[in-house]
Design a protein around this nucleic acid. Sequence first.
DNA 1: AGAGTAGCCTGTAAGC
DNA 2: TGCTTACAGGCTACTC
Length: 302
Amino acid sequence: MPELPEVETLARDLRATVVGRKITKATVSPDAPRLVQDMPVEVFESGLRGRRIEGVSRRGKYLMLQLDKGLWWVMHRRMSGNVLRRPVKATDEPYIRARFRLDDGNELRFVDLRKFGTMWLTDDPEPIFAGLGPEPLDEAFTDEVLRETLKKRSTAIKPVLLDQAAIAGVGNLYADEALHYAGIHPKQPAASLKNDEVAKLREGIVRALEQGLANLGSSVGNVAGEEVSLRDHVNLNGESGKNQEYLVAYGREGRPCRTCGTAIERIKLAQRSAHFCPKCQPLRRRRKRTPAKGRARRAPAG
DNA sequence: AGAGTAGCCTGTAAGC
DNA sequence: TGCTTACAGGCTACTC
């Protein structure tokens, strides 16, 4: 599933290939009625026609293409969305939901099996990102920033990592990886993390994301034997990422922990699967304060 | 208000 | 073999 590393990989690919190109035609398939947000499909299509792509960037899991005339073409790949750059004459892949013809004989194809993907065309993208937390790979994402976020959350740490208002761009896969690197159990209450654990967690998040980025993303849903799968993340050329080979927790249920050999476990947490090593990531139970001890602290015997 | 859950969507795999 | 059901998951909208 596309998370920060997968979206950033796409942004880099696009930056290298489509900046300076003009969109000559945009076509959205009628079988993807939810793809275009906040405006009629025809307005979206005609609004993109003739626009020049001036830059590509990313915010959280959102991809942003800066166009001339002060416009922004924003997209979110959600679960299964991929962008492919193909010659206009190339054979169609299945699940093409939209096409964007460029002035160099290529076109961008938005391929999205599950149809969860969304796009916007706007002169002000900021409201789209209004609810997003800090970028985890920015220098501004410090231990203290993370600590302040976590101390307000009584729930388990894993769902907090998935909350885009807490940290932008982390999804289920990289959350499991980050917690494993940090040695923290996914059910550990967020507010219970000590300072050194928060520091380890921030390191784990950065490590997991940077490794994903270095390996051009994780492609975990691909079917064995299929040359190019479009069921999961692929890059602009349709090639899979390599990071799935290096995962330490996600998708490794029953397989040995790379650190200690213990079988990786999978549990359900907040409707999501969570993978972890029960030995390297022990749940630190909050010590129950006994009534006697609590009382003793407030009213020492004497 | 924070937390939990249904729904969006489709293909695959498990179960009967 | 063939049908049904569960599952995968980012995010929003809704309920408690």
